[in-house]
Design a protein around this nucleic acid. Structure first.
Lengths: 104, 104, 104, 104
DNA sequence: CAAGAATTATGAACCC
DNA sequence: GGGTTCATAATTCTTG
């Protein structure tokens, strides 16, 4: 987003304080606006980091593929490791049951 | 093609099995166990960090809610802020496409 | 319970009743096999039709390419046409959110 | 939309030809425009049908859930049925191999 | 045929 | 806690 739409922080701080008393109920243009901006900034920053980590993970999958590993199987393995062993077993036995029921 | 360049994954898999004797410690059933474990560890580590960031974000939403903000509105604001650059980009790519389509 | 609906064994009857009120004839390991098979058949049938439609669409793209149209541009046009109603909807929901946020 | 507001196809065809001569080089507003519109209409129609089928499938999953089946397992079963048996076996054995390699 | 984008499906979070 | 919406992951399709 372009910076020109955002007033600089010093001016904003002044305005915030000035208006805070004038319109305390809705807090529009007052300290609440600063607070809102702060929340948004913090969240967007964290989301950026999160995305970067996602890219790192993707890189490792590419690396493991180059090393000759089957990425689909690797992902399957990771999925299994995330689940509780009991859950894995339960789903497997249910799958077997369904298979037998339809004669597979 | 020189040997030191990476062969494709099928060849690599074959070579891995061929080399099993040469590197017995980390080889299990023709698989470079150490390498596999390393990939898995790295990925799981990064996923943990990613999840932690997700929790941080959730915390901020809770905080903003406590501060009196409407979380749903906040999220929609964030979504719009995220989408706008994407749309600018899209318009540009559409323009490029049209240019190419008419041979510019 | 009529005899002709009676399951083969007492154990089977218990399991059947515990899990569902199914026709015992079609019960395999406590699973209503006929019902399961029916669900699977119906889903696979619909997925086939869905895939066929996907192929039809692909054919039309090929046809439009033969007619001299730029397929990439065409696809982007379609994407935009699909997105516009979504945006209208979003604007409305955003408005609703703002209203709620200010207590209307 | 009421039918009386839509020009009938003969009228539309006449108009197309009338404009074709006016701008033959780029084919804008001429037959190519009609052709383009036709492609778009056909594709959008098919995509609608495709989406409807997707909804039908979703409904069946809901129905099977109500009947007491585990939807996740059901989907797993369908996925397996889609793959070639050889592929299924290969992936399973590879998974076992990886598991042993990391000592699971 | 590998890489990348696009669609589709799955899983998580939120509200009721 | 169950259904619904939204974010993330997986698959599919396309292009070079």
């Amino acid at each position: 987003m372009p910076d020109h739409l955002a007033p600089d922080s010093a001016d904003e701080a002044k305005k915030s304080r000035a208006r805070q008393e004038a319109d305390p109920e809705s807090n529009v243009g007052g300290i609440a606006a600063d607070r809102l901006r702060s929340f948004i900034d913090r969240i967007e920053r964290l989301e950026e980091e999160k995305k970067a980590l996602g890219n790192d993970i993707k890189d490792i999958f590419a690396e493991s593929k180059s090393a000759g590993f089957d990425v689909a199987v690797l992902k399957q393995l990771l999925r299994i490791r995330k689940k509780e062993p009991a859950e894995v077993e339960e789903q497997e036995s249910l799958l077997d049951l369904y298979k037998r029921a339809i004669g597979m």
